[in-house]
Amino acid sequence: MEKPEYLFKNGKRLDGRKLDEFRKMKIKVDVIDNAEGSAEVEFGKTRVVAAVYGPRELHPKHLVMSDRALLRAHYDMLSFSVEDRKRPGPGRREVEISKVLSEAFRSVVALDRFPRTGIDVFVKVVQADASTRITGLNAASVALAHAGIPMRSMVTGVTFGKIYDDKGKTYMAVDVFKPEDQWGMADVAYAKAWNTGEVVLLQMDGDVTKEEFMEGKKMADKAMEYVYKEQVKALKSVYEVE
């Protein structure tokens, strides 16, 4: 795909959304029977499965901590998740995302409850259309809750970016998809421990001014409430009385 002339025109983005509009979101809980907890989240065409194993015995043994559990997130994209085959296995990008996801969750999970163990969170991107790390984070958060692991808050994330119109004017937009991620001037991954309000993940590619950032963040905060409500709804629906 060539760089488009505009990403925003007549109040509409390339996929017809408004600036503060989310893609169609779907959250399914309990999709992996073998796992302690699992969830599948779709943000438009982006689709991610997360599965939580543990707390369980931790290997390798030198990582064991006598006073708490080690939470490890493993992010990866399946080889068919993108148009050009993604070489399987963690590379620079996957290691980084795994690290930031792990750190985001370590700040909310009550790890001291499970000394000497490990909690593994597998995040697999089945289909990628931008915002995969945030989609994965939302899925992982639901999967952790479903696994019965104690945490102070749900973790909820959204992305926002800076896009342009045909006259060269720029706008902030929430929940970026592939063309906006690729051609937009900036995209930000932003996640909070929703119930406590702490920011647990914040990354940016490209550049924005402070004003633009604050504008995007304001939209993102509003969108986050919507994502959080969907997460809660999905979790509760598992146990809804028929």
């Binding site: 809750a145 696994a147 019965g148 945490m151 102070r152």
Partner: peptide, 28 residues
Amino acid sequence: SGPEIRAEILGLADIRDRLVKVIPLSGR
């Protein structure tokens, strides 16, 4: 958390007199 009592796990809220508990629905 301040004046609020919050759930830490997914479960059923159980309030008996002054004691607030969450009965877990999953977990090891």
